[in-house]
Design a protein around this nucleic acid. Sequence first.
RNA 1: GGGCGUUUAGCUCAGAUGGAAGAGCGCUUCCCUUACAAGGAAGAGGUCGGCGGUUCGAUUCCGUCAACGCCCACCA
Length: 866
Amino acid sequence: MGTSADLMKAVYDPAEIEPRWYPRWEEEGVFKPEYRPDGEPFCVVIPPPNVTGSLHMGHALNHTIHDVIARRRRMQGYAVLWLPGADHAGIATQNVVEKSLAERGLNRFDLGREAFVDQVWEWKDVYGWRITRQIRRMGASCDWTRERFTLDEGLSKAVLEVFVRLYEDGLIYRGERIINWCPRCETALAEIEVEHRPEDGDLVKIAYPFSDGSGEVVVATTRAETMLGDTGVAVHPEDDRYRHMVGKQVRLPLVGRLIPIVADRGVDPEFGTGAVKVTPAHDPLDFEMGERHGLDRILVLDNEAVITEAGGRYAGLDRMAAREAVIKALDAQSALVGREAYRHSVGLCYRCDTVVEPILSLQWFVKVAELTGPAIEAVRSGRSRFIPGHWEKSYFHWMENLRDWCISRQIWWGHRIPAWYCPSGHVTVARSDPDACQECGAGVLTRDADVLDTWFSSALWPFSTLGWPDETEDLARFYPNMVLITGFDIIYFWVARMMKMGLRFLGEVPFRETVIHGLVRDGAGRKMSKSLGNTIDPLAVADRYGVDPLRLALIQAANPGQDVPLDMEWVEGTRRFGNKLWNAVRFALRHLPAGSVPPAGGYPARPGPVDSWVLAGLGEVAARFDRLSDEYRFSDAYGLLYNFSWAEVFDWYLEMSKVALARSEGAEVTRQTMGVVLRDILKMFHPAIPFLTEELWSNLVGEGLLAGADWPEIPAFDPVPRMDDLKALVSGVRQFRAAQGLSRRRMIPLGVSGAPPRWVIDLVEAMAGVQIHMWTGQSEAGHIRLPAGPWEGFIPRRGLVDPVAERERIDRQITRLQRLVVGSSAKLENPHFVERAPESVVMGERRKLAEASERLASFRRQREAL
RNA sequence: GGGCGUUUAGCUCAGAUGGAAGAGCGCUUCCCUUACAAGGAAGAGGUCGGCGGUUCGAUUCCGUCAACGCCCACCA
């Protein structure tokens, strides 16, 4: 007769079981909040991945954390909505498509705007499914019926609404400012989209002669080519070296323009020569100085960072070529008075790594200062909190130092700015195509060509996805979201902006908690990067080891704020755990009819000591597991459960259960206990390893889906304190065996004093491979003593003991105990300790000393007797 | 130049309110015991970054220094 265990292979095979379950979960509607119609709403939104992107390890970590939260809450009875979706990722996506066009020798201008955007939509339709499939493959319990896309109709409506309202409130304006320009993407960028990196360059010093021929002033720069656009030289008003020059004119070398020397407090007299060339069109600081002194703004770089007509004979040269040409020309006319290697920070485009240029440009901006107040207050007051809390400091620091957010992008893929211009230059901002200029009534209008920063729509994600600006049921039910899970790298890009927009438009924080997780690193703790070649593809890991092992490896390292090291060895380890769990259930099914374990409850009314012990342990672990999970300390929660399952349940309890199962008496209770303990372990593991646990559930319980089951509620059981003593007795014998090299087959007679109950005797005999007889005598010299709480084991030396090995064993114990005794005595001999330490501590110390002394003496006698 | 974080076993990390240093992996030895050799049993291994201070007692609290990491910043 085959048991149901025989239906299970002896080896856990993720590849076989993982494809089975996702369709089932979806069919049953487990992932929809409607699955728990009476549950409290619990909503999280996915940080929308780039629609044409591919799943990387950062997603795998983020989605695993989301899923662990969502699945546990669902089992706890919440109406969970994990809302999935994707981001159109303006520049990034456009770059990808442009690259593919380039392979065909085309650029976007060849296609024209409309055809190009159509092309991107086609890409979206092809590649958008890739990331979705990958997210499903990872087991993410998203409600796909509510999937959203930042460029879909509803979200576009939300973007439009927000833009128009902010414009009407005066918080969005169009203006000419120095912005960061990426000459490769050919678009403006926001401040935070520029990454700064130190690079080697030259600091060149140039002499600008006074127009009256009375001398010269020397300025320093790392961007020599910008001198073509200089319209002034500035010095500090109190700098005695230069004070007398203020008001003079200098003749700009190469160009010949006459420009003034002005005094400005923005100049740092300590730096360089203390005199600075002023290029108002190509430097933010210079722009401000130019404003203060009425200097001209001359653009010398165009959209591709090529010198403009204003650059005279350098026009047409790329900025880098122009830099060299300018330096060479200056040198030729002896205006170059210094050139030294200089390491300085340059700004790079966060999308393509190209050096950005500060350029004067007409762009749209959000006045963020007026949005930050509520966003700071919400966090300060605790209405929304960060986990770990210290991120709040960074959040505040960031919020308090914000400049206006440049939101217009000169690309085609995105939400087009809802602004129209009439021939007279009036601006009309409207929710739909206006018929006429709202200022002058002109009927011929052209729409602004720019689109909005991708992050503008991302900022609305927690409510736009729920239907806002319409007053939908979902919006009422699921806003605010409960928790946002994200990496620290997008706190500023995303979290802070969602906070501002949510508070502005819904008057309430978008989420109650922000859980910050770390970066996935390699086994050596290095950041994963393409250049280091140490990136790990989560799907390749899933293919090789399984999704569940990958998820468990990630979650077991994922405490808030901590980086997650990932090595294939770790994944191998979690797969071994999966195998262990698999086999534990297989063992149980040898003794239980398949499907005989109830989906909930079913705890034995009168468990024996062993069953009671494991149930008490389970209850305690479950309680701690819940506390840790509530604090998002998943590494600790799953570490705890993992250790308990393996070390206590598999290594001790299942072994012990074999004794009871071999008998008729008590076997039924043990079967029952074994079933519910394994069932509850499956439940607690399910959020982390959903596929494996669901598969095992189908064998063990066979009723309903584990994904839709209830979270364990474990009644209190007597913890059976004697269990530790029993284990000590068994371990003592095992140690002795190991030290003496005695095989397990060799039966050892063991005298036990203190009259342990029958069940203890049975267990020790079975587990330690001993034959027990009650011991009442004394004769210590001829025996090895194994203290175990109220009992003591005695193993006769004769014929069993190799004196050398035994001496080693005893000496180790003596050394350990001596250290203890010395330390403890010193403490107790210290009058201050006895006087001032709490009574309980002193008592404990005395007991400790007495116990250790007694055991030490015993070991010494044993050693002498050898 | 500011701000934040980290420093405990070979590696990756736990160690609430201060009272005999922990886990996983790796390593050593033994064992194919009827769920599992992707396993079992036993074991070795730590001046808790340095120095001061508070305390009867500090990995834990305070100060300081050091190393490493990250973020922000308009040094031309």
